[in-house]
Structures are given as C-alpha cells and as structure tokens.
C-alpha cells in the first residue's frame, strides 16, 4: 500500500460519503444521475465477487463492503425512498446506460487477464467504471446547474482516479513486473473523461463564480 493508493481510496470513499450525506440530510438527489449510480453498483458487484473467497487484507475487505453498501444504498434512496425519489430528475437523466454495459461486457470477453468467469467480470468492472461517470456528466451538461455537493462528488471521483494513476506509476517503479495494461488503459481513459470537468471546476473556483459547464 502506498500513499497515493491510500489517498485515492480515501477520496473515493469521500465521494460516496459526500453523496450519501447530501441525499440523506437534505433528502434530495437533484443533479445526481441515477444511471451513473446504477453503473457503479454493477461495477462493485462485478469486481468484488471474490469478496469472500480471496482475502487480501482487512482494509481491502472492509472497503469493499463499504463501497458495495454505499453504492447500493444510494440507488435504493434514489429509486425507493418516498421523498428522495421525487427529487430525481428523470426527464434529464436519459442517457441509455445499457449502451455502455454491452460493449464493456463484449470487450471483457475479448480482453482479460484470464478467460475465467471471475477475471472476465473483473475486466468488465474495470471497463464499466471507466465510462460510468458519463451519464452524470451528460446530466450536468443538460441541467447546467451544479450544486456544490454534486460538483464536489465529481471532483473527488476525478481526484481518486488521478491518485490511482500516481499509485500505478509508483508501483511500476517499485515492484518488479507490475504491469497491468487493462487497469492502466481503462484508468487513463476514465481520468481523461474528468479532465474537462476539472478544468471548469477549478476555473469556477478560482474566479469564484458558479460552476457552469459549456452547453
């Protein structure tokens, strides 16, 4: 475990905690894409299949449980909670996310570490995570109003990805044979998706103006 990876996991944890707090305290999910949250729930379900069969460390197991619990409870809140569900902006959150799922599944069948069910599901979760933010970014572009909790949510997610790239660079130079193209390519693609959001987020913060994404 290196400092970049720990910081990355913590900012990832922070992003879901910020989101859960927002939904739980103000009983609103305005500006949040349910599609993205559903994709994240699938990402964690597909990636953590080995939760009970492959023990890495207590930290690893606890974090997996936290990510699974938080992503599924966010989806539950947005779909089932009597108050929160009314604040869901379903007219604008119309990105057909199954368009993302199928290609990721096919790609995972083609490119994986080993052609076993668990490895294919792991690769699928890596590819799906890379594009999972897409419906959320589309929703932000459409509604253009970014309340600061939603902005913080996307910002922390982007920061977690940048820190993971630093983690891979560190591991590449400190661990022999640490080469994992699947995670690296997908991780870089994912981080690039945040690049323009980062730019507008930092510019709005610097000029102290409300965050506006160009149409």
């Amino acid at each position: 475990m290196n400092v970049f990876r720990l910081a990355g996991d913590m900012t990832h944890l922070l992003s879901v905690v910020v989101l859960l707090l927002k939904i739980h305290t103000i009983k609103s999910c305005a500006g949040i894409s349910l599609k993205t949250q559903e994709l994240y729930a699938v990402v964690f379900a597909a990636r953590y299949l080995d939760l009970f069969v492959h023990f890495v460390s207590l930290y690893n197991t606890v974090m997996k449980l936290v990510f699974l619990a938080s992503s599924f409870s966010i989806v539950w809140y947005m779909k089932r909670h009597k108050i929160v569900r009314r604040t869901y902006d379903k007219d604008h959150d119309t990105f057909r996310h199954y368009v993302l799922v199928l290609p990721c599944l096919l790609l995972a069948l083609l490119i994986n570490e080993k052609f076993t069910f668990r490895e294919v599901m792991w690769a699928f979760s890596i590819y799906l995570e890379a594009v999972a933010i897409f419906p959320q970014l589309v929703l932000l572009q459409r509604t253009r109003n970014i309340d600061n909790l939603t902005g913080q949510y996307v910002f922390f997610l982007g920061a977690y990805r940048v820190l993971y790239i630093l983690n891979w660079i560190y591991r590449y130079f400190t661990e022999p044979h640490f080469v994992h193209w699947i995670s690296w390519v997908a991780g870089i693609v994912q981080t690039l998706l945040y690049a323009d959001f980062f730019y507008y987020y930092i510019m709005s913060w610097k000029n102290n103006v409300k965050l506006e994404l160009p149409a």
Binding site: D9, H54, M63, E113, K114, R118, E119, N167, R171, I182
Partner: peptide
C-alpha cells in the same frame, strides 16, 4: 500468487 492482475486494489 492468487489471480492475475492487481486484484489487491479496490
């Protein structure tokens, strides 16, 4: 050494 890939990461 367990499955391939950086499966020690989250």
């Amino acid at each position: 050494n367990g499955p391939a890939g950086p499966h020690d990461e989250l």
